[in-house]
Design a protein around this nucleic acid. Structure first.
Lengths: 345, 345
DNA sequence: CTGTTAGCGCGTTCAT
DNA sequence: ATGAACGCGCTAACAG
């Protein structure tokens, strides 16, 4: 059943039926009523989305491009919260969300995304690969989240001050052997200890670099040479990838094992917490731990995680509002908040 | 830049350009090469998705309709895993995923979903409300997940045997006061103790009803009258909604407080675990707990949760394969597995 | 191998 | 207030 068929059956023109659905003021209420009723009766669900989007140029679909695989992103608390925030705003304004992965995929049909009215890009890596094939990147709105893209609005959090704040808090209690567990920080993939001469990604390639800068500033202020603090790196923010690296840290001899671990994410810190408990290490007595993100899982357990809370949901809301033109497309910086839990009082 | 313009600039017909992108065997490799090169040069990204989908009738987009709000679903481990599984298969076959909420929303434009090639519907409630406005429900494939829909294929888990299995395991150690915490089981919303005469939803309206039947069968076999076992109900599977109900249970006097809680989800059990720890109740010595789902959060902590693991990711994969026609659209029953953790050895 | 043509279903002028 | 006609950008069928 198409609009045209419906018009024929009703003995009116297609324009009138179209107007009945889209521009109520263009026809008599009575006729409109009759058309809508008859439409429902005959099983006509309203204008076809494909034809309408071709005609109008808009689809009411916003594409969200995620750096990591969808499989990973959907199971990551921070990414999920971001998506929640985006979904909330889109939903409230009659839009829907198309999920795309930034990973290059053999069978990927990049063109298929040209259906979207706008793009929210989350996380850096894919964007560089993708922006080239992104359909009309400069004709449709695009908002970057958690990284910067020349010429486009972006939503960020205050990574350096946040890193400083939590490290500063942790160091107020003196630590004999602090350690740092990074996330996607090294130029070359590395799930291991970071060698002193290992090349790191610049701040515009990974958010954790700025956090590390903040850590280092705090260490400096507390009279600790950052270069003397051992660092590890983890490539993926999942329990299974974190566990072996953290196990290797916790299994160091007592006089080498850090007594304070500054972690770049709550997932890392939670993994450390679990493994520490399994080894009979007491947190925070034997080992103090800090995370980053403020995910629910870290707060709904004991000991509660000490962390920097970032409002990922709000980050999503802001990005969505910008895409929909509900707020001016400018660079936005969201603030984080120190949450003092039990893992590092 | 459109296909037609490109064709004009190159002095070939539109059909040839179209073939260059869609049917390489329909033109000489040399010409194809020239066309693709020139296209890239001129900034033509390939056929427009909107026009193509109008023409071909297919969009390579699959809509996933979630019972709960997107905000909730994206933060629920089970729903997220389902989405992961769906995404994995869709991605591998060049499709993308459009997320829709089943909740009626004032500003919802149901027609906008007529763009999808197929629908995966997760969870019952929305479907009844939605199927009416769903565009051409009987023309496009639809797969139901975790509930049955007359005339459509569905993916299920073996709820009754699973409920029996875990209750049976728990009851092998004798319990003086078992209790059951349900999820969305009562006909009328209820976050509280369930009165004996309270009306429950039938098995085709909530998955937990079958699990409860399994629980009851096990209780029977162990000589306990199911009617004597107190039940509570929770409306939403989140910490914040669970906490007050569970607190009220744990704060019962010692001689009324259950020593075994059979929970309908891991989220419920984890909340109980946290609150028990806060109250100094030892698990499993003072209180034994079982969950359901087998989410990661329940396993990556100590004590590990005793639970029934369901493979939600696989559930998503199966549903996606059916939608794509990669496997016959029939009723599928996935099996669950007892995971004996520390919360109920 | 390449070109011509006819819509896919709809929204929007411009008439009346 | 209503209708006729055009074309959004593309692909399938056919003709050459």
């Amino acid at each position: 059943m198409t609009l045209k068929e419906l018009a024929a059956k009703l003995g009116v023109s297609t324009a009138t039926v179209s107007n009945a659905f889209n521009r109520p003021d263009q026809l008599s209420p009575l006729l409109r009523e009759r058309i809508l009723n008859e439409a429902k009766q005959l099983g006509y669900r309203g204008p076809d989305a494909k034809a309408r989007s071709l005609r109008t140029g808009r689809s009411r679909i916003i594409a969200v491009i995620l750096a990591e695989s969808l499989t990973y992103s959907l199971n990551d608390a921070v990414a999920s919260e971001l998506l929640s925030g985006i979904a909330e705003v889109l939903d409230a304004h009659g839009h829907t969300m198309l999920l795309l992965s930034g990973r290059k995929n053999a069978s990927q049909v990049p063109g298929s995304s040209s259906i979207a009215d706008g793009f929210i890009v989350y996380g850096l890596m894919p964007s560089l690969m993708l922006l080239d094939d992104l359909p009309l990147p400069n004709q449709r709105p695009l908002v970057a989240v958690d990284f910067s893209l020349e010429g486009y609005p972006a939503v960020h959090i205050d990574n350096e001050p946040a890193g400083y704040a939590i490290a500063n808090h942790a160091l107020k209690t003196s630590s004999r052997r602090p350690g740092i567990i990074n996330l996607r920080l090294t130029k070359h993939p590395c799930n291991d200890r970071v060698a002193p001469d290992q090349e790191l990604l610049p701040a515009d390639r990974t958010i954790t670099r700025s956090r590390l800068t903040g850590f280092h500033r705090a260490l400096d202020e507390h009279g600790i040479d950052p270069a003397s603090v051992p660092m590890w790196n983890i490539e993926e923010n999942t329990h299974d990838v974190c566990a072996p690296v953290i196990a290797s840290i916790l299994d160091l001899p007592d006089d080498e094992r850090p007594d304070l671990l500054l972690c770049m994410s709550d997932r890392i810190a939670l993994t450390a917490l679990t493994l520490a408990e399994q080894r009979g290490l007491r947190v925070p007595e034997d080992l103090r731990l800090t995370g980053f993100d403020g995910i629910a899982e870290g707060q709904y357990r004991s000991p509660r995680l000490t962390t920097m809370r970032q409002d990922s949901v709000e980050k999503g809301r802001v990005a969505a509002r910008m895409i929909l033109g509900l707020e001016p497309p400018r660079a936005q910086l969201l603030h984080t908040e120190l949450v003092v839990g039990d893992s590092c009082p």
